[in-house]
Design a protein around this nucleic acid. Structure first.
Lengths: 261, 261
DNA sequence: TGTCGATTCCCGCTCAATGGTAATCCTCCT
DNA sequence: AGGAGGATTACCATTGAGCGGGAATCGACA
């Protein structure tokens, strides 16, 4: 599907190029871009020029290339995530006002948790979540909540794969994980004491959409030593219900009509 | 620069396809996409398939196509706008708490104002700003603030073009606009009584970056009949200074050292 | 002045992209 | 059941856009 010697399509190379940028490398020269992507020099220059023409990439005064505004605009204009984010933001602010640590909103994407919003620039606590950042499902409270409320088929497929054991408390055994997921469904929240970063601990609850399926996970990251971590749960749950309602959710009683009056 | 009969590159067509989606058309069938973009049927299907493979587009259960999560992720990961947005958000929340109407953050992009953040879902007031939405520079308070603090060369080029007169109060004469811009620079804010939508009125102030150039415009939209609109200015200005500082701005005294002690 | 890297220019090769036509699938209506 | 209309897939001959190696140019730094 491509003209290239390596067998990549232009679209594939486009993704490769844009993927070369992240928060640690927000801008770079075309030559470096070529090196990072492994594309032939000439090809890189030609492709980058095409992208500059469409403003998907931009060149800043010193000549370095960075991801263009147009890219963000295109991605956002038709995105369903904007609705989710906008519905969640006010509730996240409320949480942030009460729980003084960072609050995140994550969705399940390509078998990973993708964080689409994050509030709280609290530097006193280690928190590796970033907006547009990804973390593994089975090692985050958000991921476990999302997995716990996913269709059985998806869970089965996910649990069939080998899982990385980040710390000794990371559950990787399918059976153990299944028990944990059931527990999460029953309690309504997931709590993960420092699975990736030992010093911090995450608590997450599910957010549902109008069709009663999980849309996202709302979570807070708190210091691990904090004793009253479970006390955070009711606040989170209330907020999650608020967000769910804003998304058209009508309560968990599926087949039943709501009691009017 | 393209294999196509119409002389478009793949990248150009990619942009065309993604551009076909907006908040009024967040999802559509491939056939409709082809119609909206004017691309040949077969070509549309082939290209859409490529984009689905890279997850730049996604197909929802009923078969319709929508902009993919990957697109947003790629656009956000390396974006400089995220930093601006994150710096501004807390201050925007503060404004939102005081001024009960909608608060927006806009930047200058392709001779238009592009709104990158918006708080406040107040439906009582007409407000056409949307996140990732665009409005003309000379007809919005945000636009005028951004223009007022732009390089002289940019202003000249902008004023050389013919400008649409939206209402009878829209300034379109270069000379009159220049006077208005000077006034905005001197007063430090722009106030536009209902230029596009007569019922509402915008007030905007500039946000500066570390190099002392305008990075964005912070603005609130209030009902036009509200008498104490100018009273909003100090709050806006204080917030804008806060955001500017978070971006590395060190006050307007350029060549002078700050008084230490 | 010389070195090294980034960037642009040049150019022949070739296969991926193109887009027409036609077959198939799928709803919805009668 | 039948059939009309649209969406989607399959097929395929044509061709020029994309490709990438190589060399020239630009630019910064020592």
């Amino acid at each position: 599907m491509a003209n290239s010697a390596s067998g990549e399509s232009i679209i594939g190379r486009f993704v490769k190029i844009v993927s070369a940028f992240d928060d640690r490398h927000p801008a770079m020269s075309v030559a470096e871009l070529g090196r990072r992507t492994g594309l032939p020099v000439t090809t890189t220059y030609r492709l980058v020029n095409d992208l500059l023409l469409e403003r998907l990439l931009e060149r800043d005064p010193d000549g370095d290339i960075h991801v263009g505004t147009r890219m963000w605009e295109l991605a956002s204009r038709g995105s369903k995530m904007l609705g989710l984010r906008e519905a969640a933001l006010p509730f996240m602010e409320d949480i942030q006002a009460v729980v003084q640590h960072s609050t995140t909103l994550g969705i399940l994407d390509s078998d990973e948790v993708l964080y689409i919003e994050r509030l709280g620039s609290d530097k006193t606590i280690v928190d590796i979540t970033k907006i547009a950042g990804r973390l593994p499902v089975h090692a985050t409270s958000s991921g476990l909540v999302l997995l716990a409320h996913s269709p059985a088929a998806y869970q089965d497929a996910f649990l069939a794969r080998p899982l990385t054991k980040f710390t000794e408390t990371t559950l990787t055994e399918p059976a153990a994980l299944r028990r944990h997921l059931a527990e999460i469904r029953q309690r309504g929240f997931a709590a993960m004491p420092g699975v990736i970063v030992p010093e911090s601990s995450g608590i997450a609850v599910p957010v549902f959409g109008s069709d009663n399926t999980v849309r996202a996970a709302l979570s807070v990251v708190v210091p691990r030593n904090e004793e009253n971590a479970p006390a955070r749960v009711p606040v989170l749950m209330a907020a999650a219900r608020g967000i769910s309602r804003a998304l058209g959710w009508r309560g968990e009683l599926k087949g039943t009509l709501r009691q009017s009056h």
